[in-house]
């Protein structure tokens, strides 16, 4: 099943800083909820292992993440797909746009994603809520990384 989600978040840093952090595997790894491994495989791709729990389904996803449409420092599209084995699969992407704002940078995101297998069969109803929660967690983590608090807590 497919779902979409949009949102925006204000970050207290200039656009160039936010852009750099968005391309920093260490920051991404610390920000993605459940991320166990994130390895750069090229300038625009990563191999990732992410553990997630959606409703009654708990799974470890192995997959790849690609960055496309790079327009530094205005934004990019981040796409990924992960295979959780018997738990099913998740794939999707987000268009991320950075714009200067009064307090620093406004990050807007537009997510489209699909899930399948057990995730959809048992966790389907919960996915929107979980996705929102994961996005909130990601940006809370990312905001900390951008402001340098992340280093202290990591």
């Amino acid at each position: 099943m497919a779902f979409t989600m949009t949102g925006e978040v204000d970050l207290p840093a200039d656009r160039q800083t936010v852009w750099e952090k968005l391309n920093d595997p260490e920051v991404l790894k610390a920000s993605i909820p459940g991320c166990q491994e994130l390895e750069k495989t090229s300038d625009t791709s990563f191999a990732a292992i992410v553990g997630l729990k959606i409703g009654p389904v708990k799974a470890t996803f192995r997959g790849k993440v690609n960055l496309t449409d790079l327009k530094p420092p205005e934004g990019y599209r981040i796409e990924g797909e992960g295979d959780g084995g018997v738990a099913g699969f998740a794939k999707g992407g987000a268009t991320v746009t950075l714009a200067p704002s009064e307090t620093g940078t406004r990050l807007s995101y537009n997510v489209d994603a699909q899930i399948g297998g057990k995730l959809a069969q048992l966790g389907g109803r919960l996915v929107n809520g979980v996705a929102k929660k994961l996005a909130d967690e990601f940006f809370a983590n990312f905001a900390r990384a951008v402001t340098g608090e992340g280093a202290a807590s990591a």
Binding site: Q114, G117, A120
Partner: peptide, 15 residues
Amino acid sequence: YDPATGQLVTASYMD
């Protein structure tokens, strides 16, 4: 079935 992906979303007694 989810029309876009063909996932069966009523696959337990919860749904």
